[in-house]
Design a binder for these strands. Structure first.
Length: 421
RNA sequence: GGAGGGUUAGCCUAACUGGUAAGGCAGCGGACUUGAAAUCCGCCGUCCCUUAACGGACUUGGGGGUUCGAGUCCCUCACCCUCCGCCA
């Protein structure tokens, strides 16, 4: 959410920003509501002032043992008028809030203007795409041959898109998660969090999933709780409605959680195997930082996520998302795409974003900076998502005999095993 | 699921039978000081008006109600603690 006063004073800028993302926002409506709201506030506040003054003098009279009937009778009408105005103000504020919540964040000045995926510039690529002297198999074939997972039975349990890992497949998944957690906690200085996998509405609104993406999430209706679509939700909301000590910043957290996404309306393309699933595992990095250094923090975060792929020896590229591809709440975002030889394409395994104070304002996350209280900047990035990572890993390290060479950094997590198959 | 107790500012703690949130600690700025400590003064949640100053409204977990007036009374929801029940 942007600041209401900021929107009021920078209406063209906000309009331009929203248009660049292809979001429709009724700023004319905003201006009308805002204007009316401020008029009513002034009216109501002055009536309340009258009431406060009168009530106080009534209290004084009563204390002195005098009668105050006429005064009280006079105030009764005022109370009704205030009640009416209060209702009007409230209605207006609800509508205003609706409009405010629908306004996307402004892109940072370094974000290129563009319409969508095709216009995201590649910032860098790393590693050679592996060559094979045999036709590389895709992850489904390999998984089948090696007995690593069982999509059929996953479907039997929960429907298509719910993968089931077994044997060394499950072990490999667990190894990847542990490897990433250890890297980020031990080398990069993140504090590990194991949060609830369900979250309430306030959290969802705080990080910006609500109101826009309700249809994309699983909801437990009995308790009005959502299955988290990413650990960003519980971890960013750790400090919701808190004022942090400026000396404690930056705060850096890493969390492994499963992620649940309905992916409504996305059946068909790109849904084979692990490419798009309703449940996947992810290690997420979240930072709360001072506004001044937040863009350097974003570069650092990106580097830390990239290191996962480097250590695993997987070829990847980093792209900077253009305005048209930027998510609702982000001011700047990099995607990391890993190369999957069997699929013959890049797969997105990480998004690293700076939200500036957009989430912090929604969630009320502030810090004390000297004598002042200010909003923090929040950042997060996948570090990284395992399902697609596993795809790239299988397809990159396969041998002609359909074995899997285990990358050295993973061997300690697999009893020193060098090969699977 | 049942019974009782609780939630006041970054933290800690007050407020009569309803009378308009008192203190303390921490932090920030200033005075004093060679410097520091101590001491004193101011600031230290949000919004509106305003160039600014001044001013005003709101804020006692959330939402509603009663009242001229609600931290206080009533209803409701959330969370925390204790006990009982159930349970991996």
């Amino acid at each position: 959410m942007l600041d209401q006063g900021f929107v009021r004073e920078n209406i063209e800028l906000v309009e331009k920003g929203a248009r660049g993302r292809g979001e429709k926002v009724d700023l004319q409506l905003f201006l009308e509501l805002d204007q009316r709201w401020r008029e009513l506030l002034a009216q109501r506040d002055s009536l309340k002032h009258q009431r406060n003054v009168a009530s106080q003098s009534i209290g004084q009279l009563v204390k002195e043992g005098q009668r105050a009937e006429e005064e009280i009778a006079r105030m009764k009408g005022l109370g009704q008028r205030i009640k009416g105005l209060d209702e009007e103000v409230k209605t207006l504020e609800n509508r205003l809030r609706g409009v405010m919540l629908s306004i996307p964040n402004l892109p940072h000045s370094s974000v290129p203007v563009g319409r969508g995926d095709e216009e995201n510039p590649v910032v860098r690529t790393w590693g050679e795409k592996p060559g094979f002297d045999f036709p590389p198999r895709d992850h489904l074939q390999l998984g089948g041959l090696l007995g690593l997972f069982d999509f059929g039975r996953g479907s039997k349990l929960a429907g298509s898109g719910f993968p089931l890992y077994k044997g060394l497949g499950a072990r490999l998944e667990r190894a990847l998660v542990n490897f990433m957690l250890d890297l980020h906690t031990q080398k990069h200085g993140y504090l590990e969090i194991s949060p609830p996998f369900l979250a309430n509405r306030s959290c969802m609104e705080g990080t910006g999933q609500l109101p826009k993406l309700e249809e994309d999430m699983y909801l437990c209706e009995h308790d009005d709780l959502f299955l988290i679509p990413t650990a960003e939700v519980p971890v960013t909301n750790l400090h919701r409605e808190e004022i942090l000590d400026g000396d404690d910043l930056p705060l850096k957290y890493v969390a492994y959680t499963p992620c649940f996404r309905r992916e409504a309306g996305s059946y068909g393309k790109g849904t084979r195997g692990f490419l798009r699933v309703h449940q996947f595992d992810k290690v997420e990095l979240v930072k709360f930082v001072r506004p001044e250094g937040s863009y350097q923090e974003l570069e650092d975060l990106l580097g830390e996520a990239e290191e996962v792929l480097r250590l695993l020896g997987l070829s990847y590229r980093v792209r900077l998302l253009c305005t048209g591809d930027l998510s609702f709440a982000a001011a700047k975002c990099y995607d990391i795409d890993v190369w999957a030889p069997g699929e013959g394409k890049y797969l997105e395994v990480s998004s690293c974003s700076n939200y500036e104070d957009f989430q912090a304002r929604r969630a009320g996350i502030r810090f004390r900076d000297g004598g002042k209280v200010r909003f923090v900047h929040t950042l997060n990035g996948s570090g990284v998502a395992t399902a697609r990572l596993l795809v790239a890993l299988l397809e990159t390290y396969q041998t002609r005999e359909a074995e899997l060479i285990v990358p050295p950094v993973l061997r300690p997590y697999l009893d020193g095993r060098e090969k699977i198959g």
